[in-house]
Structure formats: structure tokens, C-alpha cells
């Protein structure tokens, strides 16, 4: 069942060339989809359109069977959580617990419920010891974990990670990717928006955007084998993938490759 369906979506910022043109895609319930694209490919614009922060010029977005419009936008936002790129600019609360509570306060949860959920989800992202801490005492990765806890506590069906790891150090990035994996396993539909192929290969499906158009869409394995599309996408390819392509081009037999590798390791 498709939880998100996007049909012929177009959007442009004032008089500029289209940030998105005729984008059509769908996301199945419970899957993990990566939207992959280089800078300016329109991938962040897409996430803002889905959650109704921007208004599309034309096209239709359907979330869980409901068409996004001015009346349904608040209901749809209850279904979608979004973790943004900059850890500092999405930290609303004065302390960690305030920030986790923020979304629940907006959804009018009971106070006792909020207190329980803060404990539960802080535990889940290993931030229990930091509940009373202020944001400037936290690292970027910790702030992103707080943001994740705040969204998990809102019990949304879909979570979008909009370049959520791009401002983190490798360690923070790894921990966030692990949490994403766990969240997806627990049944939440996850959309990761990224320019990093290393992150995208972890997902079930990849959608590649280039200059506001979908140029590829399919299972991760299929996409990785589609050499031409990947080469034309301006993305930085993974080293093993590059190597594979080079070897393909050289047209060597497997035995020859083995020989060369063997020689190389002997010379060392």
C-alpha cells in the first residue's frame, strides 16, 4: 500500500527555473526510501512540499489517502515527522526534555503522558542522562538524537530525514544511521534525503533526483547496477562501485582480476 503518492508535482521559487518539475513517485508503507541527489537537485524542496511548508505550483500529494491542501495540512503534519539538517536550528526547547515535549505539547497530549513519553523516548535514543541539559552543552549528534526522540514521541507514521547527518562527525553519523535502521524495523516508513550514496545504499529503494526531475527509481540493487544513470547523476560514486565499473570497462576475466590483486598484495 502506498503511504505517499506524488503525481506531476512542480514547484519553482520566485521566477527561477523549476526546482521540481513533474515529479511522480510513491512510497510504500513501512519501507525505507532514499531520495538521492546532488546540491540543488530539489530534494529538500520535495520534503518541504510533502509536509506543506511550501505550496506546489501544480500536481498532487497524497499522504495516507488524503490529498494535501490547506485544510488537511495539519492532519498530514501529524502523520509526518521531519528531522532537518541543522541540529541547532530545530532545537526549540530550552532543555532536552522541553524539546522532546514540544511536539507533544502542540498535539495536546496529557501532561502525565508527556512526562512518561519523554522518559521512554529519551531512553530509546540514549539521552536519559541529559534531560535537564541545555542545547549548547550537547554535540551535534546528541541534538539530532533529541530531535529524533521528539518526533518518535509524536508517533508519526512517516519520518523524513532531510540531510539529517550531513552536519555531523562520522561517529554521530553512524549512530544516527543505526537509529534510522531501528526505527524502520519498528514499522515506521522512513524517507532519507541525502547526497551521500553511502547512506542511500542502506535503504530498500532509491529515487535519484537531478535538476528537479526523477531520473531513476527502483530497488537499491537495481539502481547500483544501472551504471549509465548513476554516471549521469553527478553523484559521487562509492569507491567499490567505481572499481566495479572500471573493471567492467577493462573487460578482464575474473581470473585475470584475481591475478592482478594477488600480485599487488605480494608486492606490498
Amino acid at each position: 500500500m502506498n503511504i505517499i503518492e506524488i503525481k506531476d508535482l512542480s514547484f519553482s521559487y520566485q521566477d527561477e527555473i523549476d526546482a521540481l518539475s513533474n515529479v511522480t513517485l510513491s512510497v510504500k508503507k513501512g519501507e525505507w526510501v532514499s531520495i538521492l541527489g546532488h546540491n540543488g537537485s530539489g530534494k529538500s524542496t520535495l520534503s518541504k512540499l510533502i509536509i506543506g511548508l511550501l505550496k506546489a505550483d501544480s500536481g498532487e500529494i497524497k499522504v495516507d489517502g488524503v490529498i494535501l491542501n490547506e485544510e488537511s495540512v495539519h492532519d498530514i503534519r501529524r502523520k509526518i515527522g521531519i528531522v532537518f539538517q541543522n541540529p541547532d536550528n530545530q532545537f526549540v526547547g530550552v532543555t532536552v526534555e522541553d524539546d522532546i515535549a514540544f511536539g507533544m505539547e502542540n498535539l495536546c497530549f496529557e501532561q502525565s503522558d508527556i512526562i512518561d513519553k519523554i522518559k521512554e523516548y529519551a531512553e530509546k535514543v540514549s539521552m536519559s542522562e541529559y534531560l535537564k541539559k541545555e542545547p549548547h552543552a550537547l554535540s551535534g549528534g546528541q541534538k539530532q538524537r533529541v530531535a529524533i526522540a521528539g518526533i518518535l514521541a509524536m508517533k508519526t507514521d512517516i519520518i523524513i530525514f532531510d540531510e539529517a547527518t550531513s552536519m555531523l562527525d562520522p561517529k554521530g553519523r553512524e549512530s544516527i544511521m543505526n537509529y534510522i535502521k531501528e526505527i524502520n524495523k519498528a514499522g515506521v516508513t522512513v524517507i532519507t534525503i541525502t547526497h551521500d550514496m553511502k547512506e542511500a545504499v542502506l535503504s530498500d529503494r532509491i529515487i535519484i533526483l537531478k535538476e528537479g526531475r526523477v531520473i531513476a527509481c527502483g530497488d537499491t540493487n537495481d539502481i547500483l547496477n544501472d551504471k549509465e544513470t548513476l554516471n549521469s547523476s553527478n553523484l559521487e560514486l562509492l569507491l567499490p562501485l567505481k572499481l566495479q565499473y572500471l573493471l567492467d570497462e577493462a573487460n578482464l576475466s575474473n581470473d585475470k582480476v584475481k591475478d592482478i590483486l594477488w600480485q599487488l598484495s605480494l608486492n606490498k
Binding site: 518541504k48 509536509i51 511548508l53 495539519h74 503534519r77 501529524r78 509526518i80 515527522g81 521531519i82 532537518f84 541543522n86 541547532d88 536550528n89 530545530q90 526549540v92 526534555e97 522541553d98 515535549a101 514540544f102 511536539g103 507533544m104 505539547e105 502542540n106 498535539l107 495536546c108 497530549f109 496529557e110 501532561q111 508527556i114 512526562i115 519523554i118 521528539g150 518526533i151 509524536m154
Partner: peptide
Amino acid sequence: FKRSDDLANAMEARSFVPGKRRTRLHT
């Protein structure tokens, strides 16, 4: 300005509607 723009997006994405009733963690 950049920050406040981002923050406004983050708050709205978390269902904040100015002037709407909210419950509170601290009472």
C-alpha cells in the same frame, strides 16, 4: 534570519500553530 527561517519550519513541521491551544510539560 536564516536560523529563524529554519526554526519556523522545524516548529511548523512539529505541528506548532501560533495561537492554538497546547498542553504544557511544565505547569
